[in-house]
Amino acid sequence: MSAALDAPERPAVPATFRNVSTARKVKNQAATVLVTLAFLVALVPLVWLLVSVLIKGVPAIVSADWWTRSLSGVTPDEVRGGVYHAIVGTLVQALIAGIIAVPVGILAAVYLVEYGRGRLAKITSFMVDILSGVPSIVAALFIFALFISIGGLSQSGFLVGLALVLLMLPVVIRNTEEMLQLVPDELREASYALGIPKWKTILRIVLPTALSGTVTGVMLAFARVMGETAPVLVLVGYARAINFNPFEGNQASLPLLIYTELSTNPSAAGQLRIWGGALTLILIVMVFQLAASVISRYSAISK
């Protein structure tokens, strides 16, 4: 490739190694500078976003009330109360999604990896691909059409959870599939050779081996759906008070709180709540991601 190698006569002295052509040096330098620049450019919006959320959000979240109180009885321009009601709503709705999407997703992945041969597996896999491309507003409208327009139900946190299931499922399935594929076939064979039936092999050998990776993926799926905004806009009303019950009444969530304050409350208190809410959401998502990376350290496969 390089000029040095193509040269007809190559001196046999070791000094050759130091004699790098200038053109190559320049190219090398240029590439290094370019890559570093690209990295910095990519970093700018990230750092900017984080810094402004921190600067404007920290004053809101440092009070104890922020984490323990709702906005019930607080007038829009008062700097008082907190977002406990929204945190509760976000977690409850994500939990509903998880209770449905995690077992179904893991079982679907087990089917695809361990049993799936032929038509049904191909169709399932194709469906998962489509599902993972569905925008959240479409998932929300689908649930709206099915349960509210046709089913006659009223808006609730539970319906938000159902919409989140649609967004969570493909993430859980794809990730679990990958983890199961990482489990070496040799382990399955070792188990079969001991006279252990297939279902028990999957349950007691394959799944435990893939466990930490699977849990990591589940955590990331949670982190992903907790910030989804379209479902909460379409499927549930905002409440300023705490509501633990997802089946009845309005229920706040962090994205919904941010959106509501943004669209209805131009006061300084509202501004503060928006940034505080954003920072709170980022922190909660970060906790889940941290948990995910801690768990993945204990992976049985990589050992």
Partner: peptide, 28 residues
């Protein structure tokens, strides 16, 4: 499954179960 209980097999590459202790591997 019954056949494999009577006819055991050892593979080319050692393949202990990574999630299990030595004891659990033996009595798996």
């Amino acid at each position: 499954v019954a056949v494999r209980r009577t006819i055991g097999m050892v593979f080319q590459r050692p393949n202990p179960f990574p999630t299990m202790s030595i004891r659990d591997n033996v009595v798996a």
